[in-house]
Amino acid sequence: MPLPVFIAVGLAACAVIAAYAHWLGRSARQTLSDTEDALRLFQAACPDLEARQARLAGDRHAALVMLENGDAGLLYAMGSKWMARDLPAGSIKAVKRLSANRLRLILADYTMPRLTIALADENERERWIEAMENAARPPERGPIERKATA
């Protein structure tokens, strides 16, 4: 099969399978039941960080976690799985208020460039921004990612 045809057929197959998965209802995002749930999931993903408190997003697809070291952390539903990150100084490039209850975070992380978070109301939105203030500040030294890959 010539390459362009193979690629066209491949992309068509991608679209068909994705549409089928969506039609089956496999696009639903994971939801947090309560703050305990958020802390447990964050701790499991980042065992080196001490999670103290959590605030749930309005749609329960994300949680802001306050860490023992004073930084904030974030738990975010990536489809049916979770992704967790700490947010040290310099990790947030910009915070955009999309609406009264929606925030967009632009992050200094190539593997997590932007996230949209739905919050209960304007008050809650401002509380989140306040809690992430340190993460939006430039780091004291050069940005050194604290990550381990394996």
Binding site: L3, F6, I7, G10, L11, A13, C14, I17, A18, A21, H22, R26, S27, M78, G79, S80, K81
Partner: peptide
């Protein structure tokens, strides 16, 4: 299975060819 995860995997497969 999750839709976006599956779609990404399939696009990665096509792109690898």
């Amino acid at each position: 299975y999750e839709t976006r995860d599956t779609l990404t995997s399939l696009i990665m497969g096509t792109g690898s060819v």
